[in-house]
């Protein structure tokens, strides 16, 4: 038997060359869309995370290219409308996108060019998965990766409604939802994500989440020593933390970075819509149907009697056609 691939611990991790078995098994799944009672996995994978240090990004888009290449997607060539974003938005063929913001810092009077690598955050509490109506279309592994299983996707777009970060995109050709996979297929084989590996400044790093947090600490200290007193880690607790984290120079104002949500959380509306109200609603409908059936079986039906037929006959016989009809209501 071939061995299982090791868990990748760095962006540059390379598995040995002999054939290996995948190390991300169906049994490693901890959450499954539209499915309750997911069996508890018999092992816990090391939680992983991708750390994006925004202060180190030079906007070269090597990560975008690496993502396209690894995932074999074909984003269409769009028109240049005078902005740096290319393509203009995330698409079913572009899982990650550099978003550029020109920010005039009122404190220093300097122009800052904020560049953020947008893409799925791999939420610990994923809104996409909560909203999805199709069993097994979205899964979360015990290492924290949230993955879309396209065979089960029906293309309804509920994940778009559920995601606090506006990430999933539904393909116009196969009507399935796409987003960053955190390179689950590479991670399964002991390799770090393609984008992290391609990044020339090591702005993107990858590894166990705890280590990534420690690494972020160092970076934040460094940034603070350079005068970015609000530097900090973006690992929003409103979604239970994320497996893609940012180091931000202005961690007090995440929305500066092309609208990164300040306090992301699954919308209360989505929670309500997907909450116990559904079961209550179904129960009420069931009760109404059963109630109607019982009344139908045991209640008294409104039968028209022979007597009423005779009275109708009389009424019709007595009424001369053409005469004013309206007796009861003048």
């Amino acid at each position: 038997m071939t061995d299982r691939a090791p868990q990748p611990l760095t962006a540059a991790a390379n598995p040995p060359v002999q054939p290996l078995e995948s190390n991300l098994l169906p049994s490693d799944v901890v959450r499954v869309s539209a499915t309750k009672d997911v069996p508890k996995p018999d092992r816990q994978l090391t939680e992983v995370a991708k750390l994006i240090d925004v202060s180190k990004c030079i906007g070269c888009k090597a990560c975008q290219s690496a993502c396209i290449e690894w995932n074999d997607t074909h984003p269409t060539v769009e028109e240049n409308v005078g902005v740096y974003e290319n393509p203009h938005d995330l698409t079913p063929d572009m899982f990650t996108l550099m978003r550029f913001t020109e920010y005039e810092n009122p404190e220093t009077n300097e122009l800052e060019w904020l560049i953020r690598k947008d893409g799925c955050m791999h939420c610990e509490d994923p809104g996409c998965l909560k909203a999805c109506p199709a069993p097994g279309a979205i899964v979360q592994y015990s290492n924290g990766i949230v993955d879309f299983i396209h065979e089960n996707c029906i293309g309804c777009g509920y994940c778009v409604t559920g995601c606090p970060f506006d990430i999933p995109r539904i393909s116009k050709t196969d009507h399935k939802s796409y987003k960053c996979t955190l390179c689950s297929d590479r991670v399964a084989m002991g390799q770090g994500p393609a984008c992290a590996k391609a990044c020339p400044t090591q702005c993107i790093t990858f590894g166990p989440k705890e280590e990534m947090k420690k690494h972020a600490e160092e970076r934040i200290e460094d940034l603070k020593s350079r005068g970015f007193e609000h530097a900090g880690l973006y690992d929003p607790q409103g979604v239970g933390g994320t497996h893609v984290m940012y180091v931000l120079h202005h961690a007090d104002k995440p929305s500066l970075y092309a609208g990164l949500p300040d306090e992301p959380a699954i919308s209360p509306l989505v929670r309500e819509w997907k909450g116990p109200a559904k079961t209550v609603g179904l129960a009420a409908i069931g009760l109404a149907a059963v109630g109607a059936a019982l009344h139908g079986l045991f209640g008294r039906a409104l039968e028209v009697t022979e007597h009423e037929e005779e009275e109708a006959q009389e009424l019709v016989d007595e009424t001369t056609p053409g005469a004013p009809a309206d007796k009861g209501d003048a």
């Binding site: 309206d326 007796k327 209501d329």
Partner: peptide, 9 residues
Amino acid sequence: KWLRELAGR
């Protein structure tokens, strides 16, 4: 009333 009206037409 509906029946009456029709009968009268």
